[in-house]
């Protein structure tokens, strides 16, 4: 499903102008990463997608729904949002109930709900933890519960706010797998991340925000090639991109495969 943002501005009640005119189209089925300095407005931007925040000016269309006149409850059927901090999101007594909460509220049939819950638990490798209270799990696994409880809603758009924070290598691989699966299903995925290597390995399109504005928007390889511009919003290019540049490669490399291919020549 398509997301269309038109000259979006947002001022917090404190007077802080967090978004200063953002226009953006994210096509159906696109996988987009949003990067940028702390306080650049990344979370503020995506919180508009499911109506948690309402624009001070401008508009957001989720498919054909204008977020200004659509309730958060209704938007939840189109936009799934995984919070940065799982503790802001989880409330059920056990993992199974938590993951079931979303699809049940969307009014899916029992069979469909069961199937979606099963799939979400399998993808996040939580199948053996359905009876555990989410708060008895480590922060890592709680993050997985947050992920599962959103992907079980089967929304056409899924938003991840810093999914890899505090996760180890295995867990990051698991998240990458979830995103690949959503891509295969044709979902639109928007991910905020500071993990630029993860970003390079999993996303085709990258948007860099800086002080409430779009600094760069385009194909990942193009964005990562612009080291000086990225530095304006406190982002370093991926490790292998930096290495390739230091070695004098003409092309911008993003991952191991591209790097080794050039090295072999």
């Amino acid at each position: 499903m398509k997301i269309e943002i038109n000259d979006l501005r947002f001022i917090y009640p404190t007077g802080l102008e967090a978004l200063q005119g953002i226009s953006l189209i994210i096509e159906s089925g696109e996988q987009v990463a949003i990067v940028g300095q702390n306080g650049a407005g990344k979370t503020t931007l995506v919180r508009h997608f499911n109506g948690l925040l309402q624009p001070t000016a401008g508009s957001i269309l989720i498919g054909d729904w204008d977020t200004k006149i659509t309730s958060v409850a209704k938007l939840a059927s189109r936009v799934g949002y995984v919070f940065q901090n799982p503790d802001e999101q989880l409330f059920s007594k056990d993992v199974g109930t938590e993951v079931k909460f979303g699809p049940r509220n969307l009014g899916y049939s029992k069979d469909k709900t069961d199937e979606l819950v099963k799939r979400a638990l399998t993808l996040t490798e939580l199948s053996d933890k359905t009876e555990t209270n989410p708060y008895d799990l480590s922060p890592t696994w709680r993050k997985m519960v947050a992920l599962a409880s959103v992907i079980s809603m089967d929304t056409p758009i899924v938003i991840f706010d810093e999914p890899t924070t505090g996760q180890d290598a295995l867990s990051i691989a698991r998240i990458a797998h979830v995103i690949a699966e959503l891509r295969r299903e044709g979902k639109t995925v928007v991910t905020i991340t500071h993990d630029i290597d993860f970003c390079a390995e999993n996303f085709e399109r990258v948007i860099a925000l800086s002080e409430g504005r779009i600094l760069l928007d385009g194909v990942a390889a193009n964005i990562f090639g612009q080291e000086e511009v990225l530095a304006q919003t406190f982002v370093d290019p991926p490790q292998l991109t930096r290495l390739g540049k230091k070695l004098g490669f003409k092309e911008t490399v993003r991952n191991q495969e591209e790097f080794l291919n050039i090295l072999r020549k």
């Binding site: 650049a40 500071h194 370093d236």
Partner: peptide, 9 residues
């Protein structure tokens, strides 16, 4: 863990 890359450095 939640800091931007250059801020981290």
């Amino acid at each position: 863990s939640q800091m931007d890359p250059i801020g981290t450095r």
